[in-house]
Amino acid sequence: MDVNVNAQVRDPREHINEEPRNDLGDLLAGFFGMTGFMTVVFFGMVIIKYLSE
């Protein structure tokens, strides 16, 4: 029995389509970005509270 199968087998450890990423940089950017945004929101709400009195 002769089976002719044209299968393209690649080692999944090659990561051909994987983009290089900086996970620590992404984590720090997200953390400090969100901290900065929440700080701005906090002081904005404090200013609005004192202006409304």
Rank of each mutant, 00 (worst) to 15 (best):
V46I: 07
D11H: 01
H15E: 14
Q8I: 09
G30T: 01
G44V: 04
V9E: 07
G36A: 05
F43K: 00
G44M: 03
V5R: 13
E18H: 06
A7F: 07
A7C: 04
F37I: 04
G25M: 11
V40T: 04
E19P: 01
Q8K: 14
M1E: 06
N4A: 11
R21Q: 10
F37P: 00
G25E: 10
T39H: 03
G36N: 00
V41Q: 02
R13T: 11
D23R: 13
F37T: 00
F42Y: 14
R13V: 06
I16H: 13
E14C: 03
G36K: 01
K49D: 15
P12A: 00
F43S: 01
D26K: 05
G30N: 12
L28G: 01
D26E: 11
I48A: 14
R13N: 14
G30K: 05
F37H: 03
M34D: 09
V5T: 12
V3T: 11
V46C: 03
F32G: 00
G25Q: 09
L28H: 03
M38V: 03
Y50D: 05
L51W: 06
L27I: 07
D23M: 13
N4C: 05
R21M: 10
G30C: 04
D26Y: 07
L27M: 12
N4R: 10
M1D: 10
E19R: 10
P20F: 10
F32D: 00
R10F: 10
D23V: 12
E53K: 14
L28A: 07
M45V: 07
E14N: 13
I16F: 15
S52Q: 06
A29W: 10
E19S: 05
S52R: 09
E18G: 04
Q8L: 14
R10H: 09
V41S: 03
N4F: 12
P20R: 07
M1P: 01
V40W: 09
L27N: 06
T35A: 15
D23N: 13
V40Q: 04
Y50Q: 11
I16T: 07
V40C: 01
T39G: 11
E53P: 00
V3M: 13
P20T: 05
P20E: 12
I47P: 03
E14I: 12
N4V: 07
E14G: 00
D23H: 11
M38Y: 08
N22Q: 10
I48H: 13
F43E: 03
A29D: 12
F31G: 04
L28M: 12
A7G: 02
M45E: 04
T39S: 13
S52F: 09
V9R: 06
Y50C: 03
L27F: 15
Q8W: 10
N17E: 15
E14H: 06
T39C: 08
I16W: 15
E19C: 04
V46N: 02
H15F: 15
A29Q: 11
I47K: 02
N22I: 02
G30E: 11
V46F: 09
R21I: 08
I47T: 03
E53T: 06
N22K: 08
F37G: 04
V41D: 01
E18P: 02
F43A: 02
F42M: 10
L24D: 08
M1I: 05
F32N: 02
P20I: 05
V46Q: 04
N17W: 15
G25D: 09
M45C: 06
R13E: 12
L27D: 06
N6A: 13
